[in-house]
Computed example of a mutant assay.
Amino acid sequence: MKASAWLRGTVDLVLTVVFILVAISGIALYQAPPGRVADAIGWTFLGATKDTWETVHTYLGFVMIGLVAIHLVVGFNSMIVMLRSAFKKSRVKVAGSLVLIGLVLVGGYFAFAALTAEEETTYETTSSEGTSVTTVDNTTIEITGSMLKSLTLEQLAKMYDVDPQKLVEILKADYNIEAQPTQLLETIEINNELDREQFKEILAEAIAKAKQEGG
């Protein structure tokens, strides 16, 4: 397909801009806390929430697919001509380039597979280290070690739609635990000299009770 230099330049420029934005959104999602933790702690990256970055990354991904397709159609003939010319001049270099591209693709696949496996292992480890309680309204309450390190009592209460002050009262009345809504969960654990696994169970039970009593 013959195309003007203006069209080629425009496609390349837009593709470059979209690539940069996709890279930025990918970095944002890589750094984002898992699951509902991002919403609970009000996490943002460059002023945007995790949900916003997920939307941006998804839509820009589709835009990039379209732009790459246009880029290939517009430059297909030129690509074939250049490959034929290069092949005539040096078949060894062309073959080496193809092998190098293949190695990069294979290496990328294994790197992605390793990263995915690592994320799954981390998730399974986190889940196994967590404490889960299912309340009468079928809401599963899960407390993990990462939540203790990153959430305040108030943020945890908001995650499960209960009143933070009510949770403070239950912890004091039922478990003799002194706590303030703005305190980090790990700080409450340390200040009250609690065993971590026991504290996870207490928090799950306290949240379940708060939900049963109407928040």
Rank of each mutant, 00 (worst) to 15 (best):
T10K: 13
V11Q: 03
V14D: 09
I20V: 15
I20R: 10
A23E: 04
I24T: 02
L29G: 08
Y30M: 14
G35S: 13
T44Q: 09
L46F: 12
T49E: 10
K50R: 15
T52A: 15
T52V: 15
H57W: 10
T58Y: 14
Y59G: 02
V63A: 15
V63N: 06
M64D: 01
A69R: 00
N77V: 07
N77S: 08
M79K: 10
V81T: 12
A86C: 01
A86N: 13
L98G: 07
L100M: 12
G107M: 08
Y109H: 05
F110P: 01
T116I: 06
A117Y: 11
E120A: 15
T122N: 14
T126H: 10
T126M: 12
S127D: 11
S128R: 10
T131D: 07
S132T: 11
D137W: 06
I141S: 00
I141E: 02
S146W: 01
M147S: 02
S150I: 04
L153W: 00
L156W: 04
A157F: 06
D163V: 00
Q165C: 06
L167P: 01
L171N: 07
K172Y: 09
D174T: 05
Y175I: 03
N176Y: 09
N176E: 12
I177N: 09
A179Q: 02
L185K: 07
E186G: 03
I190A: 13
D195K: 12
F199Q: 02
I207W: 06
K211Y: 05
G215N: 11
